[in-house]
Amino acid sequence: MEDAVRALDLTKTYGTGPSAVKALDHVTLTIARGTVAALLGPSGSGKSTLIKALGFVSPADTGEVFFGGRLVVKDGVPLADLAALRRRHLGFVFQKANLTSFLTARENVEIACEFGGKSDGRKRARELLEYLDVAGRERSYPEMLSGGEQQRVAIARALANEPSLILADEPTAALDSVRSRSVMELFRKVAHDRGAAVLVVTHDHRALDVFDVLYEMEDGQIRAHQQERPAPPAAR
């Protein structure tokens, strides 16, 4: 199965001297397309730092990141246009949905399509909202949506450009258990239907059965790597 992203020996240290904190300590991981993976670990274990490094937001100090088989960051130095990579190949879902407050649900998805160079943004936004069962709220502003609806719109936005990798940082933290499970299942559906790799940072152990792969971080290291079941092949 094709790798969506592969990180090799990533290290990242915040601060210097005795107060230095090693957020990533020689982390290596690979996420294949069509796989939904969970990243577990206590606060301060380096999960967010890893997400930032894999999302090309804040590169690691050393190590390499391959995207779609191509080396794009080496020892903190970008070897490609990272903003363009984010625009076209990555989708982000956050803890609080983080929809753009002055855009309606549809526009939040449409703008992502526009950034990704899609010409039929409006049509695609409607399709995605329909796919995620929030088509009826397309004209609503984020503040008018419930937490679950907001997350669905955020997922629709993350899918706007058919990304190879979706990074979700505690996307269910603000949701009840029913909605939380529903969102996790959505990620699984997206990964399996659309062949995207999904990495979800979560503290929520109630829906771990949804994931194909579990990573556990502690003190900046990937401590455990548990593969519960083989990932199904990508749909496309």
Binding site: R87, L90, F92, F94, N98, T100, A112, F115, G116
Partner: peptide, 8 residues
């Protein structure tokens, strides 16, 4: 958020 999405 828009920057993270890669907004030019």
């Amino acid at each position: 958020v828009l920057k993270l999405m890669g907004a030019p």
